[in-house]
Nucleic acid binder design. Structure first.
Lengths: 339, 339
DNA sequence: ATGAAAGCGCTAACAT
DNA sequence: ATGTTAGCGCTTTCAT
């Protein structure tokens, strides 16, 4: 069997209290003693049992990460960053997939609560009222969502959109489409707001299309509508939508960026892998995941400190899907509907 | 504070044992009593503390999933499937990122061991000897790796390669390149073996290039070498490599599939999003993750049952990057090295 | 600086 | 069918 604290204590000729202290309050035990204890522990392959420890300290050493969809590449970066940061601080991480459902998310929070010290809720699908009720129990940090009373980490997507629009305006675009994401999504609202403000400043016109499903298919399905709207550029809700758009445009024989400029949002790895490579606004997902865990852990250190609201910068990454607007004529489709 | 079992017991007018039994051996308590207990528990918002339970039962109700790289889309599917299946059985899942390092992986296993009932090791970077030493402690299931004495879930990638080669042969390709993955990788060996056998059967010739990094860049960097090798088709180690290949080929002005056919492996979501869409061998990642957790859980039920070795079928998905071989002339590069 | 002993919240014998 | 009680492996007063 695995060695327990008593085995180590006996073998090292000390009491269990000393063994325990060697780990938790090292400075309270004489160096020679501690060394002997640790060496003995290593020999026996002893590791303190976290569950037993948690029972008495009230801390589990775990954090939970809940995302709406584990298959979404956006959350992959977040998870990677969160995991790395947690492990750094010697925390283990539970993951759970909310399946894009508020109810499931709530159930997961409930199930997780007792097993973690804190929960990182990513792009929560919960109602603001449900979120507001989370101020207690384990610490909670929100990613991509802002609610009073909770610590949050957000990406300045409004400014990201401003950069995107400024880029388009500089190229000469004056009439652009925005392929909107889910209407109630916080991120969508931020992006649209930032875009509208920037468009106004640039004396450009925005036609909003959608909402479309924030997936590849959403972009595929919206392509015709975009073409019909007589714009010279389209800003998609996210990279997945932009990718779908690009795919359908290629089928239709529309050249990007010669005939239409396309922008994404998020800069998931896919963006750089497309041909032409997608110009997009980079949201620092890995960094955001790490920052959120940071916020969570410091909340655990100082439960009474006021909640923090960190905002990360988004940065435009110009690649190959944006260019000068086509001359003042509308689009001719050469390859209507071909596969 | 959160209610404990004693609070529930007192309020329901029963002993703690009855409360406990209402959860763990419901049939051993009179229905009326159990109902009352459960109702009381609900009123108090009581939920059994899993850590305390685990301390005595020796079971944590957790499983761990270790992947070499959380940012790799392949493992995203695996994780999604594993998580769903685990939750189904009311298990929580720990994730950890091995950072492509055998040492880190080993450290993670050590750190996790005490906190989980079983570990799912995905595409482990560990030496066979290290793996063989894992037969004890928590249950272990291997994904994409086969070792005697351990339960495994693998994808029949040899047969996947056979399908791919058969498809190419039918189109008329007789000289194809294989962009090899890491030489020591189990998956790479399986794929190469399957490919060689199928090529022999089809009287086709395989030129092996690489090993290349199993990433987008690996494909980008290998493109020139592939072009120089005078093949009419190239089978990449995985979709990421194929995507890099495609990207570079487009830059070089090589038309796919007219001048060169390209195949990937895995069928990660990216494959369908590329233009032209990638023909690839679909490895059922989500299903594999779920099957592996299944294997893990049944191992927990019956620790003495012999280890199982499940093999999942791979299926060729023909999309747009494969076609007839170009006529018998070599490739002319029209756009050498352009961006 | 170290040890003895009392629990943390729960389950599993063992009673009744 | 239900209650009593002894721990699970550890941390933490309180002594020494």
């Amino acid at each position: 069997m695995a060695a327990g604290i008593y085995d180590v204590a006996r073998r090292a000729g000390v009491s269990v209290a000393t063994v325990s202290r060697s780990y938790t309050v090292p400075e309270a035990v004489r160096e020679a003693t501690r060394e002997r204890v640790l060496r003995t522990a290593a020999e026996l392959g002893y590791q303190p049992n976290r569950a037993a420890r948690g029972l008495i300290t009230g801390r589990t050493g775990n954090v939970g990460v809940i995302v709406p969809d584990l298959a979404n590449p956006y959350f992959q970066g977040v998870l990677k960053g969160a995991q790395a940061q947690a492990r750094e601080a010697d925390y283990a991480v539970f993951v759970a997939d909310g399946q894009e459902s508020a109810a499931e998310e709530e159930a997961l929070i409930g199930a997780m609560t007792k097993q973690v010290d804190g929960i990182l809720l990513c792009s929560s699908r919960l109602e603001p009222s449900a979120l507001a009720g989370l101020e207690s129990a384990p610490a909670v940090v929100l990613l991509n969502r802002r609610i009073d009373g909770l610590s949050t980490v957000t990406v300045d997507s409004g400014d990201g959109m401003r950069q995107a629009m400024a880029h388009l305006a500089e190229l000469g675009h004056r009439r652009c489409a925005f392929l909107a994401g889910p209407r109630r999504s916080w991120s969508n609202q931020q992006r649209l707001r930032g875009l509208r403000a920037a468009a106004k400043a640039a004396h450009a016109e925005i036609v909003t299309i959608g909402p479309v499903a924030p997936q590849f298919e959403g972009g595929v399905n919206a392509a015709e509508q975009v073409l019909a709207s007589d714009v010279t550029a389209v800003l998609a809700y996210n990279d997945l939508v932009a990718a779908g758009m690009l795919s359908r445009l290629a089928q239709l024989g529309v050249e990007v960026p010669a005939q239409l400029s396309v922008l994404g949002f998020d800069d998931i790895p896919l963006a750089a892998m497309l041909t032409p490579a997608l110009t997009t606004v980079s949201a620092p997902t890995v960094q955001a995941g790490a920052a959120a865990v940071d916020a969570l852990l410091s909340r655990l250190e100082q439960p009474d400190a006021p909640p923090t609201a960190q905002q990360l910068a988004a940065t435009l990454v110009v690649r190959e899907t944006t260019g000068l607007p086509r001359a003042g004529h509308s689009l001719h489709l050469t390859n209507q509907g071909a596969v």
